[in-house]
Design a protein around this nucleic acid. Structure first.
Length: 203
DNA sequence: TCGACGATCATCT
DNA sequence: GATGATCGTCGAG
């Protein structure tokens, strides 16, 4: 093993408790290989979706077939779905097979391939770095992630995660998840994890 | 800077 | 037939 930031995260990484994985994904590199070049970013925001007992989780309403089927498989695969008819969201499946849980990747800091990301976003003018991957839909569009990558193993060579640069514990904040008001009291559970932006130290 | 709103379609009732 | 793990735009303050 190299132990460097480029080392791909092993499958075992994803089999752990979903809240632990969501927290541990912060700072990791998400890498996408496209015909035009390599796109790389550092994850800064995630949300945990913890299975049938979590009213906000798709698997609390979905089934082993159809859209949510990949969530029932062993962790380490991609779960990608279309939302509001126009945006994709990228999730990492967690836990052993039969436990349908996942982590939504909500935001990241761009590191490599910024001009291609901006082209993928169809931005007329260069975006500020902080706006390029700030949101699950924007992140998917910038990294050219769509449902063609549904069920993709995340240690492969089209879309993968590697060790990257994890954030220290005190740089992470837990807050309620976004836009799940329909989920009742679960909307208040602090299952969203946000890392303080690199280069933006606190007071 | 912030809140409201419309776009648009796969999935589920 | 209803709705959503979103985004960009627009108008008000």
């Amino acid at each position: 093993m190299t132990g460097g930031p480029w080392e791909k995260l092993p499958r075992e990484f994803y089999l752990r408790d979903t809240l632990t994985v969501a927290r541990d994904l912060l700072g990791r590199w998400l890498v996408r290989r496209t015909p035009e070049g390599l796109l790389r970013c550092r994850i800064t925001e995630t949300e945990a979706y913890c299975g049938p007992s979590d009213p906000a989780c798709h698997s609390s309403r979905g089934s082993r077939e159809g859209r949510t089927s990949v969530m029932y498989r062993e962790g380490g695969l991609s779960y990608i779905y279309l939302i509001y008819g126009m945006h994709c969201c990228f999730n990492v499946v967690t836990r052993p097979a039969g436990e349908p849980e996942a982590v939504l990747i909500r935001g990241a800091q761009p590191l490599e391939g910024l001009s291609q990301m901006a082209r993928n976003r169809r931005l007329e003018e260069p975006a500020r770095e902080r706006d390029l991957l700030s949101g699950p839909g924007k992140l998917c569009q910038a990294l050219a992630i769509d449902r063609g990558l549904y069920g993709e193993p995340l240690w492969g060579d089209r879309l993968w995660l590697c060790a990257g640069e994890p954030f220290p514990e005190d740089a992470v904040t837990a807050t309620p998840r976004i836009n799940i008001d329909y989920a009742g009291e679960a909307a208040a559970w602090p299952w969203r994890f946000v890392a303080q932006r690199a280069g933006r130290p606190g007071p």
